[in-house]
Design a protein around this nucleic acid. Structure first.
Lengths: 248, 248
DNA sequence: ATCACTGATAATGTATACATTGGGCTGGGC
DNA sequence: GCCCAGCCCAATGTATACATTATCAGTGAT
């Protein structure tokens, strides 16, 4: 999950810095970004700043402003819900395609191995879960899933959506109060991982699609629950400042 | 459908020029693009060329090459099929969301009006269809559809996919030999437009989704037919050089 | 008071010179 | 003949000066 952008050039440094500021919520949605200001701030010239902004626009974190320039994309509550829905849609389709088109033994073995490692993370102690290890392996699972049908198109689209800061289930970590419920939901998710791989191996397209969709939509329901119960203060949205429904 | 990029700045000129060359097939998929060469060719400096390439990467026509620079995205047969599938998926979802969430009277009136105008295009003469007028109105219909549920996320994704050169049904125009069959398929499509609007108005989500998906997938089936019957020489793919399945 | 013009200003657009990097080619050593 | 080092060139990365444009405030006439 860690940003693999290994800065060396100024562009990369600016890219990381900007991405961090956006996902940390320091730059709320709708904020116009100015090349000069950012360049002075980072002690570099406008050129790499512009380049970094351009790449962030590709990632979907920035939008091009009407008359030139960029602004931070606004992640209103509804946008986040829809993005999670979109992820479910794409993962469901990828699972269906994998089942329909068939998957090579190598790929099947690979994803099965990831599921096995995930099993290990849950371990023998019922309450103990290494969140970091889980999150890492979970990411690997979903990457492997996206690659299963061998469709460059869907793999790319899914990668784009997943790269958004809130598109991961782990984006909404609970505090101590809801930890046990959260662990339970992870266990359920792991069960779904197993079933999904089985469905794909059995070439059951419709079932694979439903399972993957259901699995991905858990994050959406989680978020909806959080907002509906006004318990947003017990939740850590890492850096992302969500705009509540009413505000828009 | 016409590129609405009204060039004035050098960036815009380069953008149009490059887009045209790519969609015309002058620059086959995988071709690496060099800033200097393009700059000399267009008699401008590297800066606007770079900017144009960056925007084309956002559009999805270019990809960033591993060690800097850009290359033309390869539109292999499988990629095109998957992209059309993706469009169907998105339009189906948008239709379902519109039905589920409800649509304002104004929007419903707007899209109904477009369907009415489309009816006019088919006119009284059974065989006569003004392709240009049809294509324009058809584009309006699909834009209006994408906007129906009021989801910025899905509207943007759909816009991105639709902007790809082959994502439109009209991308694969038949020659004289298959004209009548083509006209028939347009008539069927128009019937689907009407049914789709009715389903959305009636709040029938599942039906709306199925109809929209079916409608969008017609282009996919059309393309599959063309390739399967090896009649590719009777087809005009405007500018787009498709890579046949075997080559990949 | 309102409008239209105009200038200043602040932002992006553009050109160009220079820096850096990475990959291929050539040369010598073994 | 093979391998490796080092150069060289081509391509992108970066800085900076200058051009252009859009916005807005101020000022004048009506």
């Amino acid at each position: 999950m860690a940003s693999r952008t290994s800065a060396k050039t100024h562009t990369m440094r600016a890219l990381m810095e900007l991405r961090q500021r956006i996902t940390k919520g320091e730059l709320p949605g709708g904020t116009r970004l100015f090349e000069v200001a950012m360049a002075e701030d980072l002690q570099i010239s406008r050129t790499p700043v512009r380049e970094a902004m351009s790449r962030l626009a590709e990632e979907g974190l920035l939008e091009r402003a009407p008359n030139g320039g960029f602004m931070v994309r606004s992640f209103a509550y509804a946008d986040v819900l829809d993005t999670l829905e979109l992820r479910g849609l794409l993962e469901g389709t990828v699972a269906r395609l994998a089942a329909e088109r068939g998957v090579s033994d190598a790929k099947l073995r690979e994803i099965t191995e990831i599921v096995r490692k995930l099993d290990e993370v849950f371990g023998d102690e019922p309450g103990e879960v290494d969140f970091e290890a889980y999150s890492d392996l979970n990411g690997q699972f979903h990457d492997a899933l996206a690659a299963l049908p061998g469709s460059a198109t869907f793999e790319r689209e899914l990668a784009r959506v997943k790269s958004l800061p809130f598109a991961s289930p782990s984006a909404f970590l609970p505090n101590e109060g809801r930890l046990s419920a959260f662990r339970r939901s992870l266990a359920i998710g792991q069960e779904q991982h197993r079933e999904l791989v089985a469905a794909i191996a059995a070439r059951e397209g419709a079932r694979a699609e439903a399972l993957a969709r259901e699995h991905a939509l858990a994050a959406r329901r989680n978020l909806e629950y959080i907002f509906s119960t006004e318990h947003s203060e017990v939740t850590t949205v890492p850096g992302l400042e969500l705009v509540a429904p009413a505000e828009k």
